[in-house]
Design a protein around this nucleic acid. Structure first.
Length: 419
RNA sequence: GUGGGCGUAGCUCAGCUGGUAGAGCUCCUGGUUGUGGUCCAGGCGGUCGUGGGUUCGAGCCCCAUCGCUCACCCCA
């Protein structure tokens, strides 16, 4: 390491050439899949009022309790780099009066998010998510469509070994009542639980379902299950979602122990995992959040959405073939005189005005070096500007012709279209 | 926050029982070549993560520290 003082901060990374291609390929797919379903692009600020996340995501979540990048601005306002995308989108929905539009309002984003966690494979402090949110309808068809769209996107990105788990958390009221019953069950068996789970009974009892601890698993095996206790409306809603997914050919497994890390979820929740990933096996997930918009000060508005991690999609998906930018014309200099460079520069801008992709040497290389460079770029034509005029070479056919400078672009265009 | 693994050139890595730093790739120059792709030669590039210690002598041994990475946890 030369002078390793300045490095990207822990958990962050630079996106370089090949990765940049893979990322834009993912973005193009997302735009195609979501755009054709009527989702509109939205971008929200990289930071928001801290209160938005405290209220929206939930005070009891790990995200709010210990993972937010929070700072004060010069005016003493508490701001936070967005740790997730749903609360900001809901804030924008309220702020811009989108409840006056035709419902549901369907929005998608691809943005970076920030969480102060220890980085590992597929988990970073600044990471990117593609997400989709549908606000303003509690129709089960919204849930099914949303899930099916992520299903399609994962399929198009050729994400390997995908599994979809699905469940329902019921309405907020039912969920709160259930939570108390589950806590009662856990407390009754607290001496059989792992210390970890025991200490989280009050804060996040649903987590107990995820434990690997044998004693805890035994206790959870006969714990009450939320899915068995849905009220008739919620049960009917869930049944409809399932029926529609079946109709769309989306395969899933119902997992009553599926829990999500954010407080705002109600009714439908789901998660896509890939066994091709390491410990961070979730590629994307989401669910319904019928209380969130109101929680943020808006009118009672149901919502449904998901997010998928770009870095995880890249790990579990099939990277698109790297297609370097084609170079149609490379302009080389045979000599170092100023007027040659000027002539080459004129030719270069003429070529670009004509719509050709064109490059010239910017590194003061020898002629041999320039030709090597042109070759490495895969240039289709090479124009060598010399004192005698311009020598245009068709790299594929190896034909060469000596031309006046102002005839070069025309010749390239003609040769190009002849292909 | 807690563990395991790893830090030698821009990249991938050698470096013996401690003797004072190397290869390949990339990049640049020259030669060869149908003006490039092959081949040949040369060159640029490292206070061996950092700081101590042991030793006549440390890339190698010891201690500390920082960084990267994987996992716990959590989630996308």
């Amino acid at each position: 390491m030369t002078d390793a003082k300045l490095k990207a901060p822990r958990g962050t990374f630079d996106v370089l050439a090949e990765d940049a291609c893979a990322r834009s390929a993912i973005e193009q797919r997302a735009r195609a899949v979501l755009g054709s379903a009527g989702y509109e692009r939205i971008e929200t600020p990289a930071f928001e009022s801290t209160e938005l996340f405290a209220r929206g995501v939930g005070e009891s979540t790990d995200i709010v309790r210990k993972e937010m990048f929070t700072f004060e601005d010069a005016g003493g306002r508490s701001l936070t780099l967005r740790p997730e995308g749903t609360a900001p989108v809901c804030r924008a929905y309220v702020e811009h009066g989108m409840h006056k539009r035709r419902q549901p309002v369907k929005l998608w984003y691809l943005s970076s998010f920030f969480r102060h966690e220890r980085a590992q494979a597929g988990r970073y402090r600044q990471f990117w998510q593609v997400g989709a949110e549908a606000l303003g309808s509690d129709d089960p068809a919204v849930d099914a469509e949303s899930i099916a769209l992520l299903w399609t996107l994962l399929d198009e990105l050729e994400v390997r070994e995908v599994r979809l788990r699905l469940s329902s958390l019921g309405s907020l009221g039912a969920r709160a009542a259930y939570r108390e019953r589950l806590q009662a069950h856990l407390r009754a068996h607290s001496d059989e639980l792992s210390g970890e789970v025991r200490s989280r009974i009050e804060l996040n009892p649903l987590r107990a379902f995820d434990s690997e601890h044998p004693g805890t698993r035994a206790v959870m095996a006969h714990a009450p299950r939320l899915l068995d206790e849905l009220d008739s409306e919620d049960a009917e809603h869930f049944a409809q979602v399932r029926a529609l997914l079946d109709a769309a050919g989306v395969t899933y497994e119902v997992d009553p122990t599926l829990v999500r890390g954010l407080d705002y979820y109600t009714r439908t929740v789901f998660e896509f995992t890939s066994d091709a990933l390491g410990a961070q096996s979730g590629v994307g997930g989401g669910g319904r959040y019928d209380g969130l918009v109101q929680e943020l000060g808006g009118p009672p508005t149901p919502g449904m959405g998901w997010a998928a991690g770009i870095e995880r999609l890249m790990l579990a998906g099939t990277p698109p073939p790297a297609a370097p930018e084609a170079v149609e014309l490379f302009v080389a200099l045979d000599g170092s005189e100023r007027n040659l460079q000027a002539a080459a520069f004129t030719l270069l801008s003429e070529a670009r005005s004509a719509g050709l992709s064109a490059q010239m040497d910017l590194g003061g290389r020898s002629l041999k070096g320039q030709l090597g460079h042109a070759s490495a770029l895969g240039a289709r034509f090479i124009a060598t500007v010399g004192a005698e005029g311009v020598l245009l070479r068709d790299v594929q056919s190896r034909e060469e012709s000596q031309l006046p400078a102002d005839a070069v672009v025309h010749a390239v265009l003609r040769g190009h279209h002849a292909l």
